[in-house]
Amino acid sequence: MIGLIKKDLLIIKSNLKQYIVICLLVFFLSLNGNDFAYFLPVFLSMSIYISTFSYDNLSNFDSYAISLPVKRKNIVKAKYLGSLLMFVLGCLFTLGYAFILSLFRDINFIEILITVYGGFIGIIVLEAILYPLIFKFGIEKGRVFLFVIIAFIGAIFGIALEIGDLTIFSKILNNKIFIILINLFIIGLFLLSYYIARRIILKKDY
């Protein structure tokens, strides 16, 4: 399993230059006060890691991996753990980035942590829904699902904005019990997603 995570990280490393260019671009844009750079962990951990599915698919590595001394369940585990690892790296990157930015202008670190936490919830929900679909239908159809899921989440936020009651989110974030419940729900959802994906791959023919 470690070998498979290393393989994904090496794939990501092969595109590192492009990712650095994107990060620098975002950095210079956010010098003017745009804080969307804090969504970088979301961007990095999700879109970059999902790209590893595409590379696997292009080279038929998903079939090849079955012939290696790696259990099928560990192929799934490697993707889920790799995603979490990427998220942690993304968060560390964001904090480092915020620190550098704080040398140029005032930064509200609490706001950053809330953004990163929001990103964490978004990623887990998105990946928990998406990964079993990718394992079942492949990355090509998985991408279509990704857009549908993003559109769905966007629509919910859009409706909330339309109704105009966004205070509910800040109320939730100020309530410790709600936070604990959300965290438990997120962990449960991710584990449930892992078990579904594992069941899919155990029965799958390539």
Partner: peptide, 17 residues
């Protein structure tokens, strides 16, 4: 599978490696 070596048609590691 440690004892088995395979070469499969059009299946290998991703080519960006």
């Amino acid at each position: 599978f440690n004892d088995i070596g395979v070469v499969l048609d059009n299946m290998f590691y991703p080519d960006v490696l």
